[in-house]
Design a protein around this nucleic acid. Structure first.
Length: 200
DNA sequence: AAGTTACC
DNA sequence: TATT
Protein backbone atom coordinates (compact mmCIF):
# COMPACT_ATOMS: atom_id res chain seq x y z
CA UNK A 1 0.00 0.00 0.00
CA UNK A 2 1.19 3.51 -0.74
CA UNK A 3 2.39 5.68 2.11
CA UNK A 4 2.20 9.40 2.56
CA UNK A 5 4.52 11.25 4.86
CA UNK A 6 2.73 14.39 6.07
CA UNK A 7 4.08 16.47 8.96
CA UNK A 8 6.23 13.46 9.71
CA UNK A 9 3.21 11.19 10.16
CA UNK A 10 3.09 7.96 8.22
CA UNK A 11 -0.33 7.71 6.55
CA UNK A 12 -1.45 4.81 4.40
CA UNK A 13 -3.17 5.53 1.11
CA UNK A 14 -4.97 3.36 -1.41
CA UNK A 15 -7.11 3.92 -4.48
CA UNK A 16 -10.48 2.56 -5.61
CA UNK A 17 -11.05 2.39 -9.36
CA UNK A 18 -14.01 4.08 -11.01
CA UNK A 19 -16.07 0.86 -11.06
CA UNK A 20 -15.61 0.52 -7.30
CA UNK A 21 -16.46 4.19 -6.77
CA UNK A 22 -19.66 3.78 -8.79
CA UNK A 23 -20.59 0.70 -6.80
CA UNK A 24 -20.21 2.69 -3.59
CA UNK A 25 -22.42 5.50 -4.86
CA UNK A 26 -25.08 2.93 -5.77
CA UNK A 27 -24.80 1.39 -2.30
CA UNK A 28 -25.22 4.81 -0.70
CA UNK A 29 -28.40 5.69 -2.59
CA UNK A 30 -30.79 3.72 -0.30
CA UNK A 31 -28.84 4.83 2.78
CA UNK A 32 -29.36 8.49 1.96
CA UNK A 33 -33.02 7.80 1.30
CA UNK A 34 -33.68 6.13 4.67
CA UNK A 35 -31.31 8.32 6.71
CA UNK A 36 -31.36 11.73 5.01
CA UNK A 37 -28.46 14.15 5.17
CA UNK A 38 -28.84 16.80 7.85
CA UNK A 39 -26.90 19.94 8.66
CA UNK A 40 -25.57 19.74 12.21
CA UNK A 41 -25.08 22.57 14.67
CA UNK A 42 -21.97 22.68 16.81
CA UNK A 43 -22.15 23.13 20.59
CA UNK A 44 -21.30 26.80 20.03
CA UNK A 45 -24.50 27.15 17.99
CA UNK A 46 -22.88 27.48 14.55
CA UNK A 47 -24.17 25.47 11.63
CA UNK A 48 -21.65 23.31 9.84
CA UNK A 49 -21.34 23.76 6.07
CA UNK A 50 -21.03 20.01 5.57
CA UNK A 51 -24.20 17.90 5.56
CA UNK A 52 -24.01 14.46 7.08
CA UNK A 53 -25.62 11.18 8.00
CA UNK A 54 -24.34 7.78 9.10
CA UNK A 55 -24.69 4.05 8.67
CA UNK A 56 -23.92 1.40 11.27
CA UNK A 57 -24.79 0.80 14.90
CA UNK A 58 -23.68 4.33 15.76
CA UNK A 59 -23.63 7.66 13.99
CA UNK A 60 -21.70 10.77 14.85
CA UNK A 61 -23.84 13.79 15.67
CA UNK A 62 -23.37 17.24 17.09
CA UNK A 63 -25.85 19.72 18.46
CA UNK A 64 -25.96 22.22 21.30
CA UNK A 65 -25.52 19.35 23.76
CA UNK A 66 -22.14 18.31 22.38
CA UNK A 67 -20.35 15.86 20.12
CA UNK A 68 -21.19 12.20 20.45
CA UNK A 69 -21.93 8.88 18.82
CA UNK A 70 -25.52 7.76 19.15
CA UNK A 71 -27.67 4.91 17.83
CA UNK A 72 -30.34 7.13 16.23
CA UNK A 73 -30.53 9.66 13.44
CA UNK A 74 -31.61 13.11 14.75
CA UNK A 75 -35.08 12.35 13.39
CA UNK A 76 -35.26 9.32 15.68
CA UNK A 77 -34.77 6.26 13.46
CA UNK A 78 -31.96 3.76 13.77
CA UNK A 79 -29.14 4.16 11.27
CA UNK A 80 -29.15 1.79 8.30
CA UNK A 81 -26.56 -0.99 8.20
CA UNK A 82 -23.16 -0.35 6.66
CA UNK A 83 -23.39 -1.70 3.09
CA UNK A 84 -21.27 -4.76 2.29
CA UNK A 85 -18.98 -3.10 -0.28
CA UNK A 86 -18.08 -0.45 2.28
CA UNK A 87 -17.35 -3.05 4.96
CA UNK A 88 -15.16 -4.86 2.46
CA UNK A 89 -12.91 -1.82 2.13
CA UNK A 90 -12.33 -1.81 5.88
CA UNK A 91 -11.73 -5.54 5.99
CA UNK A 92 -9.22 -5.34 3.15
CA UNK A 93 -7.34 -2.26 4.30
CA UNK A 94 -7.84 -1.77 8.04
CA UNK A 95 -8.82 -4.97 9.89
CA UNK A 96 -10.23 -8.38 9.13
CA UNK A 97 -10.74 -9.01 12.84
CA UNK A 98 -12.94 -6.15 13.97
CA UNK A 99 -15.58 -4.41 11.87
CA UNK A 100 -16.34 -0.70 12.13
CA UNK A 101 -19.54 0.25 13.93
CA UNK A 102 -19.84 3.67 12.29
CA UNK A 103 -19.72 4.89 8.71
CA UNK A 104 -20.01 8.66 8.84
CA UNK A 105 -21.16 10.07 5.50
CA UNK A 106 -20.18 13.70 4.95
CA UNK A 107 -21.42 15.60 1.91
CA UNK A 108 -19.48 18.68 0.85
CA UNK A 109 -21.47 20.91 -1.47
CA UNK A 110 -20.12 24.02 -3.16
CA UNK A 111 -18.23 26.09 -0.60
CA UNK A 112 -18.39 23.49 2.17
CA UNK A 113 -15.35 23.18 4.41
CA UNK A 114 -14.37 21.56 7.65
CA UNK A 115 -12.14 23.26 10.14
CA UNK A 116 -9.14 21.57 11.69
CA UNK A 117 -10.24 19.09 14.33
CA UNK A 118 -9.30 15.81 15.98
CA UNK A 119 -11.40 12.65 15.79
CA UNK A 120 -11.56 11.95 19.49
CA UNK A 121 -15.11 10.94 20.30
CA UNK A 122 -14.34 7.25 19.88
CA UNK A 123 -13.85 4.90 22.83
CA UNK A 124 -10.61 3.31 21.60
CA UNK A 125 -8.04 5.22 19.58
CA UNK A 126 -6.08 2.09 18.75
CA UNK A 127 -8.38 1.50 15.75
CA UNK A 128 -7.59 3.59 12.69
CA UNK A 129 -9.96 5.94 10.90
CA UNK A 130 -10.42 5.04 7.24
CA UNK A 131 -11.57 7.77 4.85
CA UNK A 132 -12.91 7.30 1.31
CA UNK A 133 -13.15 10.29 -1.04
CA UNK A 134 -15.87 10.22 -3.71
CA UNK A 135 -16.60 12.99 -6.19
CA UNK A 136 -15.01 16.40 -6.30
CA UNK A 137 -11.40 17.06 -5.32
CA UNK A 138 -10.80 18.27 -1.78
CA UNK A 139 -7.90 20.21 -0.32
CA UNK A 140 -7.07 18.22 2.80
CA UNK A 141 -5.01 19.79 5.52
CA UNK A 142 -3.16 18.10 8.35
CA UNK A 143 -1.42 19.60 11.34
CA UNK A 144 -0.13 18.04 14.51
CA UNK A 145 -1.48 16.25 17.57
CA UNK A 146 -2.03 19.60 19.28
CA UNK A 147 -3.27 22.88 17.87
CA UNK A 148 -0.82 25.27 16.32
CA UNK A 149 2.39 24.74 14.40
CA UNK A 150 2.92 24.12 10.74
CA UNK A 151 0.41 22.29 8.59
CA UNK A 152 0.59 20.51 5.26
CA UNK A 153 -2.03 20.22 2.52
CA UNK A 154 -2.70 17.73 -0.22
CA UNK A 155 -5.47 17.35 -2.78
CA UNK A 156 -7.60 14.24 -2.33
CA UNK A 157 -9.27 12.89 -5.44
CA UNK A 158 -12.21 10.60 -6.03
CA UNK A 159 -11.31 7.04 -5.12
CA UNK A 160 -8.60 7.96 -2.67
CA UNK A 161 -8.62 5.98 0.58
CA UNK A 162 -6.64 7.43 3.46
CA UNK A 163 -6.03 5.47 6.64
CA UNK A 164 -4.98 7.36 9.72
CA UNK A 165 -3.75 5.08 12.46
CA UNK A 166 -0.96 4.93 14.97
CA UNK A 167 0.68 8.29 15.68
CA UNK A 168 -1.42 9.92 12.93
CA UNK A 169 -4.70 8.83 14.55
CA UNK A 170 -5.13 11.96 16.66
CA UNK A 171 -3.69 14.57 14.33
CA UNK A 172 -5.67 17.71 13.59
CA UNK A 173 -7.05 17.67 10.08
CA UNK A 174 -9.72 19.32 7.97
CA UNK A 175 -10.84 20.30 4.48
CA UNK A 176 -10.18 23.85 3.27
CA UNK A 177 -11.75 23.75 -0.13
CA UNK A 178 -13.69 21.70 -2.64
CA UNK A 179 -13.01 22.00 -6.36
CA UNK A 180 -16.72 21.99 -7.12
CA UNK A 181 -17.58 20.24 -10.38
CA UNK A 182 -14.12 18.69 -10.81
CA UNK A 183 -15.51 15.13 -10.88
CA UNK A 184 -18.34 13.57 -12.84
CA UNK A 185 -19.00 10.84 -10.27
CA UNK A 186 -21.85 12.72 -8.59
CA UNK A 187 -24.23 14.15 -11.21
CA UNK A 188 -25.03 17.19 -9.03
CA UNK A 189 -21.40 17.72 -8.04
CA UNK A 190 -19.86 17.88 -4.61
CA UNK A 191 -17.89 15.42 -2.54
CA UNK A 192 -18.92 12.53 -0.35
CA UNK A 193 -16.45 11.48 2.28
CA UNK A 194 -17.00 8.19 4.08
CA UNK A 195 -15.20 7.71 7.37
CA UNK A 196 -15.20 4.25 8.87
CA UNK A 197 -14.50 3.99 12.57
CA UNK A 198 -14.76 1.81 15.60
CA UNK A 199 -16.71 4.27 17.72
CA UNK A 200 -17.64 2.08 20.67
C1' DA B 1 -15.69 22.16 20.94
C1' DA B 2 -15.76 19.30 13.69
C1' DG B 3 -17.94 27.13 13.92
C1' DT B 4 -14.17 31.04 11.41
C1' DT B 5 -9.55 31.72 9.06
C1' DA B 6 -5.73 29.82 7.17
C1' DC B 7 0.46 27.96 7.55
C1' DC B 8 2.85 34.48 8.99
C1' DT C 1 -10.70 9.85 27.01
C1' DA C 2 -13.74 15.67 29.00
C1' DT C 3 -20.37 19.02 32.50
C1' DT C 4 -14.19 21.44 26.88
Amino acid sequence: MARLLLRGFDIRKAYLDVAAQTQLIEALRPILKSAPLFRPTTPSGKEMSVRMTSAGAFGWVTDKAGYRYQAQHPKGMEWPAIPAPILEIWRNLASNEHDPDCCLINYYGEGARMGLHQDKDEADFSWPVLSVSLGDDALFRIGNTSRGGKTESIWLNSGDVVIMGGPARLTYHGVDRIRFGSSKLLPKGGRINLTLRVAN
